[in-house]
Design a binder for these strands. Structure first.
Lengths: 345, 345
DNA sequence: GCGGCTCAGGTAATCGATTACACGGGCGAC
DNA sequence: GTCGCCCGTGTAATCGATTACCTGAGCCGC
């Protein structure tokens, strides 16, 4: 493969001149044309490895996601990747599979590869490597999940308005015994969703007693199904259930079906996270949609700010209620958006 | 950040010695210990960029996938990533979004980054960059989709046995008017599935007339839905439909539901590709399961063979029928495997 | 007419590793 | 005792770019 020296020889100039032409610095039209001609003839492409060594910038970002097989994260990763690419960066994606050890292992690899910046949707909270990233001051952005003690901007969605709308929606449909299936203990974001929902319900004068709050051991359909079973076995079972993650919602749906109960007739079901599949379940599931692609884009922008040495604030984007049919039918207040059938950018 | 020179100074040896210790060549125990101590004290990590420049190996693989948001490819990407990682390679994933231009653009970027090898599940067939990859002889493996004219090993699944089982399954359940929704014209793999299914049906003395073969304009739920609409509008509508891709199957399911028809009562539905969600639809969908994770692993192994300069044959792994309830109930012949509820490795 | 300024472009240092080659000391063989 | 070999280690070239610094030509002003 041709290198810069070959180009220089062919154009009858020095390597410095070639480099300057290619980086848009100074040289005069006539020289420039000769260089560009040589580049074209040889099919020359700069060696990014050599460039990275010299400039200490790889134009590569890292993304460590907690579970790639969760469709929410898949879409997030896709959005991040597209935006990074649009801005001239490559992306290395690591899948931590909800394991803090694997996550640390990944971060290590990414640091070794001298990525310019890192985005992490952290599994667990006490990551030693995250601390290392901060202390090395490699630009870092937390995605979807804040981590206590890690001083880095966090990009995530917040459900206050959506959950307020949801409480109103449920109240209007006559639901009086709500329940919540929350994420495993220790994931701060689950707690927050629970609290916001509780407050929203209070605004409708609906109580959310402790026995109707169950915490799944993991973010999986199996966990969701077990929790739904527990709820339906209650002496006074709920008439509406919110699952704080899409996979748990899916398991919950299975359990309702397995019992031969009907949605929304016997129990309403709402998922936090709106994934494309929810429009295709039977019935289509009402969901709290996070602005997934916007989150991805915002994460990249925030990270680039950090990379360029500027301060960057955390970003909190509003989630929105997407009412479908799993709670019953109700005319939509005008500020709800319609369906989210195709959220592709 | 500490570099090899710092380590050398601290250990009182030359950089060559440090390098040799770290690469497991020669030096004697006592020196070795001093070097390792210095490495530990300084928290030294080799600069992989510098190493890549010198050795011309990046220990990075590239994967260009035709659509990351298709759960089949997500799982494939995840499997590839895990295996690559296990063998000490990083992976850069590119999402071509079924666009040949974007695919070429990606391949370009990956070549620029001097990846050691490339895996591509190609969108479309006439890729100029794929040709370039071959002519540069960068190790290449085609994934899931062969490309005519590109001399590279191809790793994919083959459905002969599964489709034979499917034909028997449908025959046993009394289905006599099968139909197929195939992938867009030009994707060789869709054609193959169609042919295998036709042959299998013939073995059961069931005909597959042309009017019951419809070709979707794209691999999407919308395309699948439109095709199902066409099939159901036929004067003699089918009593069993095979969709050759999971997204099209999903759209087909929507259409059946929208018409208030029942599955399997009114029409049976089978998907090619088994994705986790199919176990959760109503009814759970019978599917032809590709051995997705095995495909991913095989692709990585094949690629590494090529990277190490050895010849590597194409790999053809058998798909398997996973009967659920969307064709009706039938006792299972013993060679069918059970459900594929959790195919995570 | 000459000093000095501008500017294109060349020379060479540099990034951080790997590795070919050189060197010197110890040791075995004769 | 000397020759030569082996082995451990150091010196320096190298990968392919970027870029600080220098040089020399052209031009302007006084």
């Amino acid at each position: 493969m041709a290198n810069i020296k070959d180009v220089a020889e062919r154009a009858g100039v020095s390597v410095a001149t070639v480099s300057r032409v290619l980086n848009g610095r100074s040289p005069v039209a006539e020289t420039r044309d000769r260089v560009l001609a040589a580049v074209a003839e040889l099919g020359y492409r700069p060696n990014v490895v050599a460039r990275a060594l010299r400039t200490a910038r790889t134009r590569t970002l890292g993304l460590v996601i907690s579970d790639l097989r969760n469709p929410f994260f898949t879409e997030l990763a896709d959005a991040v990747e597209q935006e990074a690419r649009r801005l001239g960066y490559s992306l290395i994606i690591g899948n931590a599979g909800e394991s803090p050890e694997q996550q640390d292992d990944y971060i290590r690899t990414l640091l070794d590869r001298r990525i310019d910046g890192l985005m992490v949707s952290s599994a667990g909270t006490g990551s030693a490597m995250l601390r290392e990233v901060v202390s090395r001051d490699t630009p870092l952005v937390l995605l979807d999940r804040a981590v206590p003690g890690i001083a880095a901007p966090c990009v995530r969605a917040e459900g206050r308005q959506a959950l307020t709308d949801l409480a109103a929606h449920l109240a209007a449909l006559g639901r009086r015994r709500p329940a919540v299936i929350v994420a495993p203990a220790g994931t701060p974001i689950g707690e927050e969703r629970l609290e916001l929902f509780r407050t929203a319900l209070a605004g409708q004068r609906i109580a959310l007693p402790e026995e109707r709050i169950v915490s799944s051991p993991d973010l999986s359909p199996t966990g969701g199904q077990r929790m739904m079973r527990a709820l339906l076995d209650l002496p006074e079972p709920p008439d509406a259930v919110l699952a704080t993650d899409n996979l748990m919602a899916l398991g919950a749906l299975d359990e309702v079906r397995a019992r031969g109960l009907r949605i929304p007739g016997d129990v309403a079901l709402v998922a936090f996270d709106d994934v494309a599949w929810f429009a295709h379940t039977d019935p289509p599931l009402t969901a709290v949609a996070q602005p997934t692609r916007e989150l991805g884009r915002a994460a990249v922008h925030t990270l680039l700010e950090r990379i360029e040495g500027r301060a960057a604030p955390s970003v909190l984007l509003p989630a929105q209620l997407v009412p479908r049919r799993s709670c019953g039918e109700q005319p939509e207040p005008s500020h709800w958006r319609g369906a989210a059938h195709d959220r592709r950018q």
